[in-house]
Design a protein around this nucleic acid. Structure first.
Lengths: 212, 212
DNA sequence: ACTATCTTGTTGTAATTGCAACATTTTATA
DNA sequence: TATAAAATGTTGCAATTACAACAAGATAGT
């Protein structure tokens, strides 16, 4: 997977960050980014450390929306950043690079290769993000829990070319991803097992059918 | 809203399209694009005309996913293009520019301003797309029809700074957008009216509450 | 202006789902 | 390793929702 600074030398990275008038913030464990990010239209890059985008709904339930590791990018969920439900929390000592999105767009460094590499990298990262969101929409727009699960299985199965699906996260997180109640999902998974469509061993789901 | 060829002169546009080894396809009314697009990893631009991305579900119900007008872009819903449920249909005489996505990324025209403008335009278009998808996810992940509607109203209201919302499409299309049954939505809209939360006049919805 | 097609509103009903409450197990962390 | 926190599985039940089947109104195409 492409990352923001791919094909940009360490030396040029410094030049790039100067050109883009970036600044770096430091956060200690469990500190929130948001109070220190004034503008909404920014891109953040995790320079070092590890953070999480957290959402707290009106019932007080907290969900991890995204895990941010070194070189990961945040801020494209732009409409979300000013949304009071969201917060970004450093889970360890973390350094963050903040760049004004308008500077990226209006910057006149078109003749610098490091700048053009950077925008190309962004382009690819964004393309991937769009694909991921399409995928999730594809799944969530199915009307029943069963069909959401089957669509999810189908996509995962195609992606890895296998009928053995290894859940990349917990079942609780899967329910969040599918935007359904965890216990209702649990019930439906049991139904699928009982009807002989799937088998579940820990985080591995085996598909026992050919097509759906 | 930014378009793909903004800030690129007609002359440079020709150079750009050569550099990117693009080719142009012509379609008559009601013709499908897909049989003529071999690769999956492409970007299409509507040069002239008008087309629709259509989805046909397993029940045979057809939904318009997106309307494509001059200079509009398709193909970022990349995972969708090879999905058999989807089709793109010319609704009138239409010309389409096809560009291999890999050519855009691997192209070595970094020194050409028209190329850099183009990638910057793409960047902005993609950012907008990501925002739109986030917005929809934000809405669809709400658990009840009522909350989906209220979230939609809230976003539309903020976006236009008004409590008068003008539906940009039909109620049928709104139900599709929210991924809910149309008649169930209709019932819930009636409830919201009866409880004094909203008023509806044609395609205009007035919000009678302050916050939700 | 006529006709076919699309949109909208309504209602009954069965099926699906969210929620609450709980017991267990697993995983983190002091 | 002890203890707290998070994940999992289960079940009953009330609330929500999809679906089917209409009727009536609006819109578009010829």
């Amino acid at each position: 997977m492409i990352q923001v600074f791919d094909n940009i030398s360490t030396k040029n990275r410094v030049k790039l960050l100067n050109t883009l008038e970036s600044h770096t913030l430091h956060f200690n464990k469990n500190n929130s980014f948001l109070p220190y990010i004034s503008k909404d239209n920014i891109i953040g890059i995790i320079k070092k450390g590890y953070a999480q985008i957290i959402r707290t709904d009106h019932n007080g339930n907290r969900t991890i929306i995204e895990e941010l590791e070194e070189n990961d990018l945040f801020g494209t969920e732009i409409s979300s950043l000013k949304n009071k439900e969201y917060d970004i929390i450093a889970k360890e000592e973390t350094e963050v690079i903040i760049i004004d999105y308008n500077t990226i767009i209006n910057c006149s460094a078109n003749n610098k290769s490091f700048y053009n590499e950077f925008t190309k990298n962004l382009l690819q990262i964004f393309t991937t993000k769009i694909k991921e969101k399409n995928e999730r929409l594809e799944i969530i727009t199915k009307k029943t829990i069963r069909n959401k699960l089957l669509e999810y299985f189908s996509i995962m199965s195609k992606k890895h070319g296998s009928k053995h699906i290894y859940l990349p996260f917990t079942f609780t997180a899967l329910a969040d991803y599918l935007a359904i109640d965890r216990t209702a999902m649990s019930r439906e998974l049991k139904n699928l097992k009982d009807e002989g469509f799937i088998e579940i061993k820990n985080k591995r789901i085996d598909l026992l059918y050919d097509e759906y």
